[in-house]
Amino acid sequence: MTGLRYVYAVCRPFGTPLQAQLTGIGGAPPALVRHHGLVAVVSTVPEADFSEEALKARLEDLDWLAATARAHQGVIDALTTVTTPLPLRLATVFRDDSALRTMIETREDSFRRLLDRLDGRVEWGVKVYLEEEPAAEPAPAAAAKPASGRDYLRRRREQSHAREDKWQRAEAFARSLHERLSAPAEDHRLHPPQNAALSGAAGRNVLNAAYLVPRAHSEEFVELVDRTKDEAPGIRVELTGPWAAYSFSGEDAAAEEVR
């Protein structure tokens, strides 16, 4: 079976070996391709799954996509413990090592600049959700029935205004939180709110942000987020990380399925 070179990340040479039991896509162990003082972390994948034509179909298979993203992320997580990786997009493949080395030469200056900028830094993700209200107890039939059409419209307006007020409070909290978290972070990215139908997360996503934080200051950043979690009833704050700095590498689509 013909194989392609799947590339997880580019980094500088590192001395600490990766875990012996680490596997990547399809259970293959990652290998290192060195070129011009940079290292590409790769594994061999079947062309039947990763050729351009095959990927068009494969990317419609959500189970396959999720499994591939988890395996990709597992290699990136392992790299993050021993070096600063520059993650590449999910399903970045090359015909052979020669084509891979050509890519490294073409992007060498950009890779070096990004690795210098990201060295010793990690990404933290913060999401804010307006939680759904529990279903109300059914009212007695007599009380539930509006006395008139005007009464019905009044109730609808009150419900609409209450929902709008909650949404505005959630947005104000999210803006305030983002300002506070941006101060200790070196950089930040505001991503589009997640679709609940796709993410499976409960509630309405108000803030979906990433923060670039020096690894040495991560504990303080986590404590800052933790102090905000009980500030606003009905609003949930979720912290994820530390991640490799996907959102600041120009390759941030690589682990969207798992972050």
Rank of each mutant, 00 (worst) to 15 (best):
D116K: 15
T106C: 08
R175M: 12
V213C: 06
S249L: 10
A174E: 00
G149K: 12
R58N: 06
H36G: 15
F173P: 04
P140M: 02
G15P: 06
S110Y: 10
Y152C: 14
T68G: 09
R113T: 13
E179V: 13
R12W: 13
A9V: 00
Q73R: 05
A142D: 14
I235V: 15
A174M: 05
I25F: 07
T240P: 03
R58Q: 11
R157A: 13
G203D: 06
R189C: 10
V45I: 14
W64M: 09
A69Q: 04
P29G: 05
T106W: 07
K229Y: 01
A48H: 14
H178W: 07
E186F: 02
E47V: 11
E186P: 04
N208I: 00
G15Y: 09
P85H: 06
L177Y: 01
G24Y: 04
G250P: 08
L4V: 04
R175I: 05
T102G: 13
Y8C: 03
A31V: 08
L212R: 02
V39W: 07
G125L: 05
A48M: 09
Y129N: 04
H72F: 08
L55P: 06
G241F: 06
R169W: 03
G234S: 11
G203M: 02
T80R: 11
A78L: 01
Q21L: 12
G24V: 00
R89P: 02
E133Y: 07
L212S: 06
R236A: 10
L90E: 02
D116Q: 14
E158V: 11
A66G: 00
H35K: 12
L59Q: 03
G149H: 00
L22N: 07
A67N: 07
V225M: 08
L18D: 09
T81Q: 12
R34M: 11
A71S: 10
D119H: 14
A31Y: 05
L86T: 07
R155W: 08
L65Y: 11
A20K: 13
A162N: 08
S51W: 05
M103T: 12
E137D: 13
L65R: 08
G200C: 03
F14E: 10
E220W: 12
A20W: 02
V7E: 04
S148G: 13
L32S: 13
S249E: 07
L55V: 12
S51G: 15
G120E: 08
E256L: 14
H217T: 14
A144W: 06
E223N: 15
A232C: 11
S51Q: 11
R156I: 04
Y211D: 12
W124E: 06
A255L: 05
